[in-house]
Write a protein that binds this DNA or RNA. Structure first.
Length: 289
DNA sequence: TGATGTCAAGCCGTG
DNA sequence: CACGGCTTGACATCA
């Protein structure tokens, strides 16, 4: 690495269009008792995950986000068998491939996961999904794995929502080992996310597009500088470009050079792990390598 | 096989 | 006040 090329690694989420591979096959809840069907789906997801990691190795891609549907309905009370025990061996094998090829694995629970919700049932379901995510990373021995999560709702009172989030998550050590909190595009700013991350001792993730739409009073460079110390290891960031034909926040198929250079400039030569969020998946990563 | 309506869940902002 | 959008499109059924 030269001074003009800081140590940057890239990755993409969940699917590979070149391989027609995905970790996100699922089932309908109505089929939850069809054990054979679920096991087949999971087998396909795990096999595709393995194929993508092997492909990534050839391409020099070192980050990969596992889709939440890897084990569909794993956190649902009706899931019909002990998935962790049953799929342990293949997940261990996948973890070994990731480790040997120095790929950092992550997961990203979606919009329904709100540990700061005032509704106890929402909190309970959220913790179940986060525990599932952490268990997947545990089984893969993903020591530098990351669970990416937004702070979620503000419920009209941000300070209270932050307090609830911190109180609920404070003792969740299995989850917090991997947890990182990401800026979102309309509610929680980089300053607020970093504050909660510091309270919990977890990472804060800056996303260039979210930050542009919801910057608070920080420049991108300041936001990245603020979030940097939350990471004991390499910081993770998200990079995407606006789809010009869609509403604000919608991901473009590829990364526009000006967005990449803006983020690169804001990094000030620091090392970083950058998850590329683009409709074009791995094809948007290749030009950046 | 291809088209199409549907899918566990929460929240916010818009029209 | 109902609905779209987020996210990761894929499932399930019916021509």
């Amino acid at each position: 690495m030269t001074d003009s090329h800081p140590d940057i690694r890239f990755g993409y989420p969940c699917q590979n269009e070149t391989l027609s591979a995905t970790t996100n096959r699922g089932i309908k809840l109505a089929s939850i008792e069809d054990v054979e069907r679920i096991r087949n789906k999971i087998g396909e997801n795990l096999n595709d995950l393995k194929q993508m990691l092997l492909w990534n190795r050839e391409m020099g891609i070192q980050l990969f986000r596992i889709g939440q549907h890897l084990i569909p309905f794993a956190s649902h009370p009706s899931f019909p068998y002990e998935w962790a025990a049953y799929h342990r061996e293949s997940m261990e094998q996948i973890g070994e491939i990731a480790r040997e090829t120095e790929q950092r694995l992550s997961m990203h629970p979606g919009q329904f996961i709100n540990p700061g919700s005032p509704n106890d049932e929402v909190v309970e379901r959220s913790l179940a999904e986060l525990t599932y995510s952490a268990t997947v990373l545990d089984l893969m021995n993903a020591n530098n794995g990351v669970i990416v999560l937004h702070l979620g709702g503000a419920y009209g009172d941000k300070p209270s929502a932050m307090r609830r989030f911190i109180e609920v998550m404070r003792h969740e050590s299995q989850i917090n080992r991997y947890l990182a909190l990401e800026v979102d595009e309309r509610v929680w700013t980089a300053a607020e996310v970093t504050e909660v991350a510091n309270e919990l001792g977890v990472g804060a993730i800056i996303d260039n597009l979210h930050h542009r739409l919801n910057p608070g009073d920080l420049s991108l460079e300041d936001a990245i500088r603020l979030a940097r110390p939350t990471w004991e290891t390499r910081p993770k960031l998200h990079l995407s470009s606006q789809d010009p034909s869609k509403k604000a926040g919608a991901h473009h198929a590829s990364i526009l050079p000006e967005d990449w250079f803006e983020l690169l400039g804001a990094l000030n030569g620091e090392e970083a792990d950058i998850m590329v969020e683009a409709k074009g998946k791995e094809k948007a990563v290749l030009p950046l390598l």
